[in-house]
Simulated scan of single mutants.
Amino acid sequence: MEMLLASVPLALAFSVPVALLGALLLTRMRRNSITAAVTVLVLVPVLATLAGVIGVSGFMYTPQLGGFLVVCAVVAAFTVPAALMLGRGIANDVMWLHEAHDAERVAEASRRELVAWISHDLRTPLAGIRAMSEALTDGVVSDPDEVAEYARRIRGETVRLSGMVDDLFQLSRITSGALTLTLSEVPLHEVVSEAVAVEGVAASRKGVRVEAAADSQWPVVLGSDPELARVVRNLLSNAIRHTPPDGAVVVAAGVVGDRAWLRVDDGCGGIPADDLGRVFEVAFRGEDARTPDGEGHSGLGLAIARGLVEAHSGEIDARNHGPGCRFEVRLPLAR
């Protein structure tokens, strides 16, 4: 017993420096690899114990020391791989948490920006409706023609507000996961024809031609008719709004592999390269499409189109093409 107690200071004299060196190494590694730090954390106690035992033995090989070395080697053989796996798992979890935090921060910033600009754009038509209704109520406007003009303007602002609220409701359904689709076989030609008929009024008023490419195929896709019609209408509306008078909007469709594609080409003059990747963002305002134009557009059309396309397991992208931009949608074919 006395010999054992006498060997404790000697063991500490060898094991404590190793432990302190390990602690110093861990301190320096706190900003480096988590996997390496966990591995060092596992090895330090084993090495410190080994150093203490070797010091007590006087650096002389004995059967007991040999047995202890074998035990340390076995312990290290099990603990080091376990430490590596644990470290990698922790590193992956930390990376996921950072990515989730960054995504949440971006989403929160996007929501704040959306609330800021949509509240501003909602106030504009509301202020106009209030001013005109007060003028009618106070008798400031009494001439029948002027009263009719004010009524027409109030109706126009009401339609504009209705369109903005409808877009916000649709976007809310998409982002909250409340959107449910009833899938069926949908002839793409019928969807496009209906959308062209609806948006043709705005195109004619502006002097923009809406044409179908002569070599188009019109496949049947698997989707929900109302939502696909909304996608095509939003793309056509955006194209018409940004194409100058006497310009043309060209619609084409076809098949590649097991996917159908639909393209809408406009004459907008192109989009800056830095903005191409952001045109489908909810709160992006790098272009005029993000500002209501008095026709009931909230500027959310492209964001809604992307959400509806992705709900169909499809893809949508934008790129500069010819005198303007090309928006292309890819959807699964009906089996």
Rank of each mutant, 00 (worst) to 15 (best):
W218P: 04
V198F: 00
V250A: 06
G247I: 08
D215C: 05
A229Q: 12
A229F: 01
A253C: 15
D246V: 14
G200Y: 05
V201Y: 14
R205S: 12
A248Y: 00
V208Y: 04
V208D: 03
P245Y: 01
P244G: 14
R209T: 11
V256S: 11
S237K: 13
V220E: 07
V201E: 13
G254A: 05
V196K: 01
L228K: 09
P226S: 08
N234D: 10
D246K: 13
L235W: 10
I240S: 09
A212K: 15
G223H: 07
R233N: 08
R241K: 13
G254E: 06
A202H: 12
G257A: 06
P226T: 07
S216K: 04
W218V: 13
V231Q: 10
V249P: 06
E199S: 01
L228G: 08
V249N: 10
N234M: 08
R205K: 08
A239K: 05
P226I: 09
N238M: 06
R209M: 03
V208G: 11
L222F: 08
K206F: 04
P244N: 12
V210A: 01
L236N: 09
V198I: 15
V210G: 11
S204P: 00
A229C: 06
K206Y: 07
N238C: 09
G257S: 09
R233Q: 12
V196G: 00
R230H: 04
S224L: 12
V256E: 07
V198R: 03
G223Y: 10
N238Q: 11
V208F: 00
E199H: 01
D225H: 13
G223L: 13
A214S: 15
A214Q: 14
R241M: 05
D215W: 15
Q217F: 07
P219Y: 05
E227M: 05
E211I: 08
A203N: 02
N234V: 01
E199Q: 11
A248G: 01
E211C: 12
A203L: 10
A202I: 02
V255K: 11
V208R: 08
V196Q: 03
L235S: 05
A214K: 15
L236D: 01
L222S: 10
A203T: 02
L222A: 15
R205G: 14
A197S: 10
S237I: 00
V251A: 10
P226N: 13
A202C: 02
G207D: 15
A213H: 13
S204T: 08
V256Y: 02
V220I: 15
V221F: 07
T243W: 02
T243C: 05
V198W: 00
G254L: 07
A248N: 03
A239W: 03
V196F: 00
S237N: 11
R209K: 13
D225I: 06
